[in-house]
């Protein structure tokens, strides 16, 4: 198949919902342009000298985000630093850390690694063992997500970040919309699309440069650019509901290509109609970090797990 844009080179990807084919060069341009649209809409390129801290796990999405943001930082006036939270997931995180260090060394990108064990007192592996023994009710993905967000925001803020960029792609977002609807969390559906919609003191605004990029595009981009990403899944992913929703959405997308993007477009329309709805933000009575509860989820979980240390 030939590229639908340049009509010259061999295609590397097919967009089933639009029946479009792209060659490697055209695909890379389209991919980067989609990320640039988010940066422009989110106001990242307004003014100069901004600092973007990129939340990196070492997987393809966060490394692609880091790579693209670094590439644009050579054209636009902002700085990029990578931030990795090591949650202590053995047989997984040690490999993905290598990927981040390798990319950062190659492109001379500054990075910081924060150990969850040092900061919080336990690892996700430890919390998983407690969950398997039914000593705690929180699944590994919940514990990981809560503390990753907590530490990313805290450290990005201390680093002086104007924005915290994450590697969430279109598939992640479509899954999250359904997950939140299934959990009756409408606020979470509308509080953020490609940028967090509310300005909250102590909360670094989050941007998602890969918001309009399918997970499949992310894999192809990483392969074409020789991004040192490990194409492996977290060993604890099986415990989360996300894996079921991913399978369900993939099945729907196969039957009706365009399903996932339509979910995102619907959310954007809902956000426009519900601008007045605000998430009731408070500050945790224990640690002082922003939260929707009197005591934040991180402190709630920490108080229980600390009893087993």
């Amino acid at each position: 198949m030939r590229c639908s844009l340049c009509k010259k080179d061999k295609a590397v990807i097919k967009y089933r919902h639009s029946n479009m084919y792209l060659c490697a060069d055209c695909f890379k341009k389209v991919f980067e342009k989609k990320a640039l649209v988010v940066l422009k809409r989110a106001g990242v390129l307004r003014g100069s000298g901004k600092l973007i801290v990129v939340a990196v796990s070492g997987g393809k999405d966060s490394l692609n985000t880091l790579y693209v943001l670094h590439k644009y930082s050579e054209i636009y006036d902002y700085d990029v630093i990578a931030l990795l939270i090591n949650e202590g997931i053995s047989g997984y995180r040690e490999y993905t850390i290598k990927g981040m260090i390798s990319l950062c060394n190659k492109y001379k990108i500054e990075y910081k690694i924060v150990s969850m064990e040092n900061e919080i007192g336990f690892t996700v592996d430890f919390a998983t063992e407690l969950y398997k023994k039914r000593k705690i009710r929180w699944k590994p993905c919940t514990v990981c997500g809560v503390f990753r967000r907590y530490l990313l925001n805290k450290h990005a803020r201390e680093m002086g970040a104007d924005f915290l960029a994450t590697g969430h792609n279109l598939d992640d977002e479509a899954q999250t919309i359904l997950l939140n609807i299934f959990q009756d969390s409408l606020y979470r559906v509308i509080q953020a699309d490609y940028i967090s919609r509310e300005i909250v003191p102590k909360m670094v605004p989050r941007i998602k440069p890969l918001y309009y990029i399918y997970e499949k595009e992310s894999v192809v981009y990483a392969l074409l650019n020789k991004i040192p990403a490990w194409h492996i899944e977290c060993p604890h992913a099986q415990y989360g509901m996300r894996a079921d929703i991913r399978r369900f959405l993939n099945k729907l997308e196969d039957l009706k290509p365009g399903t996932k993007i339509n979910l995102l477009l619907s959310r954007e329309k809902i956000i426009q109609k519900t601008k007045s709805l605000k998430m009731p933000m408070k500050y945790c009575e224990i640690c002082g970090e922003p939260s929707t509860h009197e005591i934040c989820r991180a402190c709630q979980i920490r108080n229980v797990i600390n009893k087993f240390l």
Binding site: E215, I232, E233, C234, A237, R246
Partner: peptide, 8 residues
């Protein structure tokens, strides 16, 4: 055959 789903 490279899996699309990876990461956490």
């Amino acid at each position: 055959i490279i899996p699309v789903a990876s990461g956490g």
